[in-house]
């Protein structure tokens, strides 16, 4: 199995770190992974995106023309990546600030209002983990157990008390994601 995923949004939304957790979780399962960021000044507020590939076999290109899954967190990223989802692929988007929703009929489209949910619950910092939960519901690239293992491995010990909150965010994401007809 191989999943080629793009995650795209604004700098500061946790796009790169979400990709990193996904890649690390793949590593925990003994899979091949690559994490390729569009690097540069994006961390300071521009658009940010990262390509994550999780595969059972050796990965050739870390840079792709088309994706199995696109996770879209703002309008400019939707414009850029909607057409790059493979036919019958998956597009997940956060509805916050989206004026022109996706229109393709040959892909599976899901909406997750993670931004609103995170704000309402005063869990703004777990926004990206809510989105990750949505992804894992639709497309179980890795198990939640592996995500928790990855968090333990990548977070410094002083932050380990935040892991349950992140687990909760994943579960919220799994609950609130819904298909768009």
């Amino acid at each position: 199995m191989k999943q080629e995923i793009i995650i795209a949004g604004f700098g500061g939304q946790g796009v790169l770190s979400m990709g990193k957790i996904l890649a690390y979780s793949g590593l925990m399962e003994g899979k091949e992974v690559t994490w390729m960021p569009a690097y540069g000044p994006e961390q300071r507020g521009g658009t940010a995106n990262v390509t994550v590939i999780v595969s059972d076999e050796r990965i050739s290109s870390p840079i792709l023309s088309k994706y199995d899954v696109a996770i879209i967190l703002n309008q400019p990223s939707l414009a850029k990546f909607e057409n790059k989802v493979k036919p019958r692929g998956i597009l997940i988007y956060d509805g916050y600030g989206i004026i022109n929703p996706p229109t393709r009929k040959d892909i599976h489209i899901f909406r997750i209002d993670a931004m609103d949910e995170a704000n309402e619950r005063k869990m703004a910092k777990t926004f990206n983990m809510i989105v990750l939960g949505g992804l894992l519901k639709i497309c179980p690239v890795v198990s939640i157990e592996s995500v928790v293992k990855a968090l333990k491995k990548t977070l410094p010990e002083r932050h380990h008390h935040l892991i349950p909150m992140n687990e909760e965010a994943i579960k919220i994401g799994m609950d609130i994601i819904k298909p768009i007809e």
Partner: peptide
């Protein structure tokens, strides 16, 4: 190059 320097792999 920037790709090999910036990407993460096993």
């Amino acid at each position: 190059d920037g790709v090999i320097g910036q990407m993460m792999e096993k």
